[in-house]
C-alpha cells in the first residue's frame, strides 16, 4: 500500500511528496523500515527497494509483520541529480530530527522521523559518491556497536566498519533513530549515479536474512557471508599528492600487499606517470577511486588491514 509520509507545496502548482510502500501481513508483528535516497546522487538503494517491494508483495504470505520501504527521502534531489535538498544547499542527512515548525526541508525531516519512530529496525542504504567505489559495508558507531553488530552481521556485507562518533554526525537520520530506540544500520556500497546489480542482490539477500532473524520473513534468504570487521584493524588511506588522471592497476574488493601499486596518476599532457599510488599495508581494498580526474589530495583508495588467511 502506497502511503504519503510528507507533503508540501512548491511555488508553482506542484507538491513535494515523500512516499513509502507498506507491505504487511499480520500487522501485530515487528516493523522494519528500509530507507534510501537521502542523497540525490546515490542510486544503489533504488534497485534494492524495487526488488524488495516486488518480492515481498509477491510472497506476502511468508511475511509476518510490516516492512515499510522508502525509496526516496529526497525525491526532488533524485529527480534532478542534486545530492542535497534542492533550493536549500543543505545535506539532508545533516538536518535530522528536523522540526515541525521549521523550513520545508526541516519539516520533511521531522515527518520522516515521526513516520519511522516506533519501528523495530531500520536499514538506511547509501551509495558512495561518484568518485569512489565501495564494497558493500555496514557502518555503525562505537556507541551502538554492542547493540547493532549482531544485526549488521546478518546483512551479507563484505565489511562492517565501526567508526568513532563525531558531533557533526548527530544530525544524521541513523543517529537520530538510534537515539530514539529504532535500531538503525547504515549501509554504504557501490558508486554514485550508478546501480551495481551484484551488490544490490547481495544486500537484498542480507535484508531478507535480517527479516528472517527478526521473525518477519519465513521465505528463502540464503546464507549471510562473514564480513571483515574493522575493530582493532588499521585503515590505510591512499591519497594522491599529484594532480592528473588516475588509472587503477588493481581489482576493487581484492586483497593487496603492502607496497603494491594500486594505480597510477598520469599527466594527460605528457603521459608521464606523476605518481604511483602504493598500498600502505596488507589488506582488503575496500574503497577504490572510480572518477579519473584527481587533484592534489584526492582519495584514491582505502585498505582495511587484514592478514590474508582465508
Amino acid at each position: 500500500m502506497i502511503k504519503t509520509v510528507s507533503t508540501a507545496a512548491l511555488p508553482v502548482t506542484e507538491n513535494l511528496i515523500i512516499q513509502k510502500n507498506r507491505v504487511e501481513n499480520n500487522a501485530g508483528g515487528k516493523r522494519v523500515c528500509i530507507v534510501t535516497g537521502t542523497h540525490g546522487d546515490e542510486l544503489e538503494g533504488q534497485y534494492v527497494c524495487a526488488r524488495l517491494a516486488k518480492l515481498l508483495s509477491d510472497e506476502k504470505r511468508k511475511l509476518s509483520g510490516t516492512v515499510d520501504i522508502y525509496p526516496a527521502l529526497n525525491p526532488l534531489g533524485i529527480d534532478s541529480i542534486i545530492r542535497g535538498f534542492p533550493m536549500f544547499n543543505l545535506d539532508m542527512n545533516r538536518i535530522f530530527p528536523g522540526s515541525s515548525s521549521g523550513s520545508l526541508a526541516e519539516a520533511a525531516a521531522h515527518d520522516i522521523i515521526s513516520d519511522i519512530e516506533g519501528a523495530d529496525m531500520c536499514v538506511d542504504i547509501h551509495s558512495s559518491n561518484i568518485f569512489l567505489r565501495e564494497i558493500p559495508q555496514v557502518r555503525i558507531s562505537e556507541q551502538t556497536e554492542k547493540e547493532l553488530l549482531p544485526y549488521a552481521l546478518k546483512l551479507n556485507a563484505d565489511l562492517v566498519w565501526i567508526h568513532a562518533a563525531a558531533t557533526v554526525l548527530e544530525s544524521t537520520l541513523a543517529h537520530t533513530l538510534n537515539a530514539r530506540g529504532v535500531k538503525t544500520l547504515v549501509v554504504e556500497m557501490g558508486v554514485g549515479m550508478r546501480i551495481t546489480s551484484d551488490y544490490c542482490e547481495q544486500l537484498l539477500t542480507g535484508i531478507l536474512n535480517l527479516l528472517r532473524e527478526l521473525g518477519v520473513w519465513s521465505g528463502e534468504a540464503g546464507e549471510a557471508r562473514n564480513p571483515v570487521i574493522s575493530k582493532d584493524r588499521s585503515v590505510g588511506f591512499v591519497n594522491s599528492d599529484a594532480a592528473g588522471i588516475f588509472i587503477p592497476k588493481t581489482v576493487h574488493g581484492s586483497y593487496v600487499k603492502s607496497g603494491e601499486v594500486i594505480g597510477s596518476v598520469l599527466d594527460p599532457l605528457t603521459g608521464v606517470v606523476v605518481e604511483d599510488a602504493l598500498s600502505p599495508c596488507d589488506g582488503l581494498l575496500f574503497t577504490l577511486r572510480e572518477y579519473p580526474v584527481v587533484f592534489g589530495g584526492s582519495l584514491l583508495a582505502r585498505i582495511m588491514g587484514v592478514e590474508r588467511d582465508g
Partner: peptide
C-alpha cells in the same frame, strides 16, 4: 521571487 511552503 518564488516561495515554497514553510519558507523563512
Amino acid at each position: 521571487q518564488l516561495v515554497m511552503e514553510r519558507t523563512d
